[in-house]
């Protein structure tokens, strides 16, 4: 899928964007293990995040594998959401907020001095906790992001494709001109996923995307996730441990030992191990529901 809207600057972020899609198509998600973190996963080194003088997250290092779902779990207020927002430089949108450390996409540090956060966010998309469709039509909600990114292809096709990927097409195909707000909460969230997909990012970050939704909508979004990792690297924050166990390949457990400390990545491993035989006691206590 040659993509004409990628400019030189964007290519700095991912060293070979043209090949990337082809590779993925050829291998699917299955062989991405041997691609390792150097492919199009992310490598985070010593990341700390602050709000003004308050340190919310400290010293997180983590490898996010390409074409895998990585779940971030942990009790409330332990910095999961703050952390995930650092991965596409959304954290700094909040006045007074800043992050330190290294976050690599491919082999580029997205916090390097000459990196443009706008372009980074085009490569690393994000879905938020609360559905936040624009006050535009369903069609425009999906098309808008692609359009501001200079998409020149067939917009109708892109919109349809994105909505299908987000498992929403069948429900909205006859009312694309209606406002995004006319949809239910679960549909709005899938619309937001579709809008993110339409920009064709490398990585999709999801900050508790199903926390405000009913079980049926949650189910649909989880089904979508399984499809998504065929083409994308997915990172998801969730409060729901069953959800993390169901959908993720890797799990990171965030924890605060003492009140007032910044959040830390307490343990990070394959999901199966995290839920069956974690190394640390707090992780076991949390995943077995003893606290949190």
């Amino acid at each position: 899928m040659a993509n004409p809207r990628r400019t030189k600057e964007e290519q700095k972020v991912t060293e070979a964007p043209q090949n990337r899609r082809d590779t993925k198509k050829g291998t699917g998600g299955a062989s991405s293990d041997d691609a390792g973190a150097s492919a199009f996963g992310m490598r985070i080194e010593n990341l700390s995040a602050h709000y003004g003088s308050f340190k919310a997250v400290t010293d997180v290092s983590m490898d996010i594998r390409a074409n895998k779902v990585t779940a971030l779990i942990g009790p409330s207020g332990c910095g999961k959401s703050t952390y995930i927002r650092c991965l596409n430089r959304m954290h700094e949108v909040i006045p007074g907020a800043r992050a330190e450390g290294r976050v690599r996409l491919g082999d580029q540090d997205i916090y390097a001095r000459d990196m443009d956060p706008v372009r980074i966010r085009r490569r690393i998309g994000m879905v938020f906790q609360k559905p936040n469709p624009f006050s535009k039509s369903i069609y425009e909600n999906v098309a808008w992001g692609a359009r501001i990114n200079g998409y020149k292809g067939d917009m109708d096709e892109l919109v349809e494709h994105s909505l299908k990927q987000a498992a929403l097409w069948e429900e909205v195909k006859d009312k694309l001109k209606k406002s995004g707000y006319d949809l239910s909460g679960g549909q709005q969230q899938r619309l937001c996923i579709a809008r993110t997909l339409a920009v064709e990012p490398e990585v999709i970050l999801m900050d508790e995307p199903a926390s405000a939704l009913d079980p049926v909508s949650t189910q649909k979004i989880e089904d979508t996730m399984d499809q998504l990792k065929q083409s994308y690297t997915v990172v998801i924050v969730t409060h729901n441990m069953q959800q993390a166990a169901r959908i993720s390949d890797y799990t990171g457990f965030f924890y605060i030992e003492n009140m007032g400390d910044p959040g830390r990545l307490w343990e990070f491993d394959e999901t199966e191990k995290m839920f069956s035989n974690p190394d640390r006691k707090e992780t076991e206590d949390y995943v077995t529901g003893r606290f949190g």
Binding site: N88, M90, V93, V118, R119, R121, R122, G125, M126, V127, F128, N132, P133, F134, S135, W144, G145, I148, N149, C192, R195, T196, V199
Partner: peptide, 9 residues
């Protein structure tokens, strides 16, 4: 709403 737009680049 603003963040949604920022996240799309």
């Amino acid at each position: 709403l603003r963040e949604g737009a920022y996240a799309l680049g």
